[in-house]
Write a protein that binds this DNA or RNA. Structure first.
Length: 463
RNA sequence: GUGGUUGUAGCUCAGUUGGUUAGAGCACUAGAUUGUGGUUCUAGGGGUCGUCGGUUCGAGCCCGAUCUUCCACCCCA
């Protein structure tokens, strides 16, 4: 076999030990918070049937799904399909179901919906689940955007209470604070407010175009938004009515008050405002317990998939230029597409890879997170090796991460190994130590060493 | 998918208008030091210059394609 230059596919990465320590720190933190709020973990397969995924993310989304080529004689399958229907046109769209019946999951929400429908008889509702797994998108990579990345999702199905939304805010607040982020904003909007706005300007059918345009306010400014609105079928009269709504300023109370006025003729718009008020009302009770999440009503927030029907969340860090580090919302009928009607759901997602990049840039990873092995036992010769083995076992039994150097290499090499792996302690075991049953314990940071017995060794290393 | 950008040692990068045998720092290995790492000194290994093709007497350098990197757009975590 020819030697090939090693490489990984575009947009994918290896995670080396130091990175995994940090990644797990993020995952563990998020998991702990999820569990604390009553969410249970599940996993679903990396691949789903193509039919499960297609049509759930819009046309753009469908293009970004990684399809898996069928095994075996896939071309023969094409030939047979054409034999059956000689009028079959060989274009990509027709060929796809013949060539590929599996695809890599694109997000965690749709597989979760499939899971809920398949397991509905085992699940007691409301069902709160979290899921931390990679997802794949055939997007073009750029800053903070990968083709394989991890999502950390928490969703609840079967409960329409806005308490869930309030708890999502708290989960964001708590997890990101523990991770050391100081300045981030949890943005909140409601799909019903957006449709209310589209209603009052008389273009309810253009709600998607409207939201896509105003979502870009941050980036392209009011002028850019107006230009895009014109391109998307709005008149300048429409824009005149829209402008004050988009430009709403002030506190959340003021914004909601203004929206109530603006949306007074839209039933759904008012419902959206009421929902947000209810969420804030729940949050104010939490806040009285000392945790005050920074939440901001932002009606330009239109993020997200077509299936959001109520609240919409997005989290942005203000400390680093980075896209959103989390998002979510409520979807009233997610499982409907799999035949289970009337089940409402709501969920949020943390973008772990982006959070990693943010923590890295802000140097917020804990220093000791890189320590893996706590102590290395040196290996002088076969006699010392045998002597060290029970010591090793006792250290490990005491819960101390310990290793014995696996061969009697030069001490210099063993020390260099400990140094390279940032092992903070080395225990030297030579003839003298074996005779006196006193180990030489070296602190690799200070360089000091002292003689200690087994019990003292355990005590010192347990600290 | 559109536009731009990048690729030379394990890593970060030099490399003149195209001209002999492609360099540096760091890292790595060995020795100085037979019971001591992180500092120092000495020596050493390591490159099909992303890949394929073209122009040329001659290509790391010029041209084309392709892959990759990063950036913007679309969209999104």
């Amino acid at each position: 076999m020819a030697i090939t230059k090693p490489s990984v596919p575009k947009g994918t990465r290896d995670f080396s030990p130091a990175e995994m320590v940090r990644r797990n720190y993020i995952f563990d933190t998020i998991k702990t918070v999820f569990r604390k709020y009553g969410y249970q973990e599940i996993q679903t397969p990396s691949m789903e049937n193509v039919s499960t995924l297609t049509g759930k993310y819009g046309d753009e989304g469908d293009k970004l799904i990684f399809k898996i080529l069928n095994s075996g004689d896939y071309w023969g399958q094409v030939e047979r399909a054409r034999h059956k229907d000689s009028s079959m046109v060989l274009d990509s769209k027709k060929l796809l179901p013949v060539l590929s019946e599996k695809a890599l999951r694109y997000d965690l929400t749709v597989p979760f919906a499939r899971y809920v429908v398949m397991h509905q008889n085992e699940i007691s509702f409301p069902f709160k689940r979290f899921q931390i797994q990679p997802v794949w998108r055939a997007d073009r990579p750029q800053k903070g955007r990968y083709r394989e990345f991890y999502q950390c999702d928490a969703d609840v199905v079967g409960s329409d209470s806005l308490l869930n939304e309030a708890e999502f805010v708290m989960i964001y607040q708590e997890a990101l604070s523990i991770l050391g982020l100081k300045d981030f904003t949890i943005k909140l909007n409601n799909r019903k407010i957006l449709s209310g706005i589209a209603e009052i300007i008389g273009k309810p059918e253009l709600i998607v175009d409207m939201t896509i345009a105003i979502d870009k306010l941050d980036k392209i400014g009011m002028g850019g938004v107006e230009k895009e609105l014109l391109e998307r079928g709005f008149t300048s009269q429409d824009i005149d009515r829209l402008r004050p709504v988009i430009a709403l300023q002030g506190t959340n109370e003021e914004k909601l008050g203004n929206l109530k006025e603006i949306l007074k003729d839209s039933q759904s718009g008012l419902a959206g405002v009421t929902e947000l008020e209810q969420i804030f009302s729940y949050l104010s009770v939490y806040a009285s317990q000392g945790i005050a999440p920074k939440v901001e009503v932002d009606i330009t927030l239109a993020r997200g998939l077509n299936y959001y029907t109520g609240a919409i969340f997005e989290v942005k860090t203000n400390e680093v230029a980075m896209g959103s580090i989390g998002g979510g919302g409520r979807y009233d009928d997610l499982t409907g597409m799999f035949g289970l009607k009337g089940l409402t759901g709501a969920g949020i997602s943390f973008g772990a890879d982006r959070i990693y990049d943010v923590l890295e840039e802000l140097q917020l990873f804990p220093q000791d997170a890189s320590i893996t092995t706590k102590v290395l036992l040196t290996n002088f010769d076969s006699e010392a090796e045998r002597y060290a083995l029970p010591v090793l076992a006792r250290l490990r039994a005491a819960g101390i991460a310990a290793e014995l150097y696996p061969s009697s290499a030069k001490l210099k090499k063993q020390m260099a190994y400990a140094d390279g792996k940032k092992i903070p302690f080395v225990v030297l075991i030579g003839s003298e130590e074996m005779q006196t049953a006193q180990f030489t314990l070296k602190d690799m940071v200070s360089g000091e060493q002292k003689k200690v017995g087994m019990d003292a060794l355990l005590t010192l290393l347990s600290a």
